[in-house]
Amino acid sequence: MLQLILWHRLQPSINPPSATTVEFTSIEQIWPDSLLVLSVIARIGQSQPDVFTENITYAFRSGVFRLPKAGELEKPDTPLTCNFTELNKSIERLRLASPKLKQAIVDACAHTVLLDNKVTDSEADLLRAIAMTLDCPIPPFLNPQRSVSKQKQFSPKRS
Rank of each mutant, 00 (worst) to 15 (best):
A124Y: 02
R95M: 07
I41P: 00
A124K: 03
L10M: 10
Q46G: 02
N83W: 04
P17H: 13
V106P: 01
I27R: 10
Y58D: 14
V37L: 06
I138T: 15
D121Q: 14
F84R: 08
V51I: 13
Q48K: 14
C109E: 05
P140G: 00
V119Q: 03
P137W: 03
P16S: 06
H111K: 12
D116A: 06
R93Q: 14
Q11H: 11
E86Q: 15
P76K: 08
K75Q: 11
N15T: 12
N117Y: 08
L114P: 00
L126G: 01
L94C: 02
T133L: 01
P140Y: 08
C136W: 04
V51S: 07
F84A: 06
N15Y: 11
T85F: 10
S147G: 10
V37S: 00
P144M: 00
G71N: 13
E23P: 00
E28P: 00
F60C: 06
S13C: 03
E28I: 12
A131G: 05
R61M: 14
V40T: 13
I44R: 04
R93Y: 05
L67D: 10
V22D: 02
T20G: 09
R43S: 15
M132V: 11
P17S: 14
P68Y: 08
S34P: 01
P144G: 00
V113T: 08
P137K: 13
S147W: 09
D125K: 08
L87Q: 05
S122T: 07
F65M: 09
A59D: 14
I91N: 00
T25N: 07
V40Q: 09
K100L: 12
L101V: 09
I41F: 04
T81G: 02
Q145Y: 12
A70F: 06
K150D: 08
E74W: 07
G45K: 03
